[in-house]
Computed example of a mutant assay.
Amino acid sequence: MSSPDVDLTIAGGSSVDVTIAEPGGVEVVVQELTTVVELDLAVPGIQGPPGERGPAGPGGGGYQEHVQTAPAREWTISHDFGRPPAVTVMDVDGNEIDAAVHSDEQTVIITLGPATAGRAHLT
């Protein structure tokens, strides 16, 4: 079985070649000088038991659809997610459209270029 070679660059620009010689030992070659340095190489062991379950995360899920029937440049939507939701904005034909979306734990404000009617999906 051949030993893998690893090239390292040390601060200051010196070049170092590292060859794994055997478990527990590493041969270090610094330019023209060879020095053998004994290192404890970590060998993966068996996996330990799983840790304790962490605390529950913030509430997730939820869905809200906002229908904007009157064209407007700004849509203001109240929600009760308790967190800023992900927002998808669509025109009346169901095409996703680009919009500036600002949200917090209770409100979403969607700003569009031209006045637009459509829908917003909050998740």
Score class of each variant (00 low, 15 high):
residue 120 A to V: 02
residue 37 V to K: 10
residue 50 P to D: 13
residue 44 P to C: 04
residue 121 H to F: 14
residue 113 G to I: 08
residue 96 E to I: 15
residue 72 A to T: 04
residue 94 G to F: 01
residue 52 E to Y: 02
residue 37 V to L: 06
residue 105 E to K: 02
residue 16 V to Q: 09
residue 79 H to Y: 06
residue 26 V to D: 01
residue 31 Q to M: 10
residue 93 D to E: 12
residue 111 T to S: 05
residue 53 R to N: 13
residue 15 S to H: 12
residue 79 H to G: 09
residue 29 V to M: 13
residue 99 A to F: 00
residue 44 P to Q: 10
residue 32 E to S: 13
residue 98 D to F: 09
residue 28 V to M: 02
residue 111 T to E: 09
residue 123 T to Y: 04
residue 53 R to P: 07
residue 66 H to P: 04
residue 31 Q to L: 10
residue 71 P to W: 00
residue 88 T to K: 06
residue 63 Y to E: 12
residue 69 T to D: 13
residue 115 A to L: 01
residue 112 L to V: 05
residue 39 L to E: 07
residue 11 A to H: 13
residue 59 G to D: 13
residue 119 R to H: 08
residue 64 Q to D: 11
residue 42 A to E: 13
residue 34 T to G: 08
residue 9 T to R: 13
residue 110 I to G: 01
residue 35 T to I: 06
residue 11 A to Q: 14
residue 73 R to F: 00
residue 20 I to R: 08
residue 47 Q to A: 13
residue 14 S to H: 10
residue 121 H to G: 11
residue 63 Y to S: 11
residue 54 G to N: 06
residue 72 A to N: 06
residue 95 N to H: 15
residue 29 V to Q: 15
residue 25 G to A: 12
residue 107 T to A: 05
residue 35 T to S: 15
residue 27 E to M: 01
residue 67 V to M: 04
residue 49 P to Q: 14
residue 54 G to L: 08
residue 103 S to E: 09
residue 10 I to H: 15
residue 90 M to W: 02
residue 8 L to Q: 10
residue 80 D to V: 09
residue 97 I to P: 00
residue 38 E to W: 02
residue 11 A to I: 12
residue 117 A to N: 06
residue 96 E to A: 15
residue 22 E to K: 04
residue 53 R to S: 11
residue 112 L to Q: 03
residue 111 T to G: 02
residue 93 D to V: 08
residue 36 V to N: 15
residue 104 D to G: 11
residue 45 G to H: 03
residue 52 E to S: 07
residue 22 E to W: 00
residue 105 E to Y: 00
residue 37 V to A: 13
residue 41 L to C: 01
residue 1 M to T: 13
residue 56 A to I: 11
residue 112 L to C: 03
residue 31 Q to A: 13
residue 34 T to N: 12
residue 31 Q to Y: 09
residue 94 G to P: 05
residue 74 E to L: 04
residue 44 P to N: 12
residue 96 E to Q: 14
residue 24 G to Y: 00
residue 20 I to E: 10
residue 49 P to W: 14
residue 35 T to H: 05
residue 94 G to W: 03
residue 3 S to L: 12
residue 3 S to E: 14
residue 83 R to E: 11
residue 68 Q to A: 10
residue 17 D to M: 07
residue 4 P to N: 11
residue 55 P to G: 09
residue 39 L to V: 08
residue 29 V to C: 03
residue 96 E to P: 14
residue 107 T to Y: 02
residue 36 V to E: 15
residue 13 G to V: 03
residue 48 G to K: 06
residue 52 E to C: 04
residue 116 T to V: 06
residue 34 T to S: 15
residue 26 V to R: 01
residue 117 A to S: 09
residue 107 T to I: 10
residue 107 T to S: 07
residue 11 A to E: 15
residue 83 R to S: 10
residue 77 I to G: 02
residue 113 G to F: 04
residue 56 A to G: 05
residue 2 S to I: 13
residue 34 T to P: 06
residue 65 E to S: 04
residue 7 D to K: 11
residue 83 R to A: 12
residue 46 I to K: 15
residue 105 E to V: 08
residue 52 E to L: 07
residue 31 Q to W: 04
residue 26 V to S: 02
residue 118 G to E: 08
residue 75 W to V: 01
residue 77 I to F: 05
residue 65 E to W: 03
residue 89 V to Q: 01
residue 108 V to W: 00
residue 102 H to C: 05
residue 56 A to K: 08
residue 36 V to A: 11
residue 9 T to G: 08
residue 66 H to M: 03
residue 76 T to P: 02
residue 11 A to P: 15
residue 93 D to S: 10
residue 123 T to F: 04
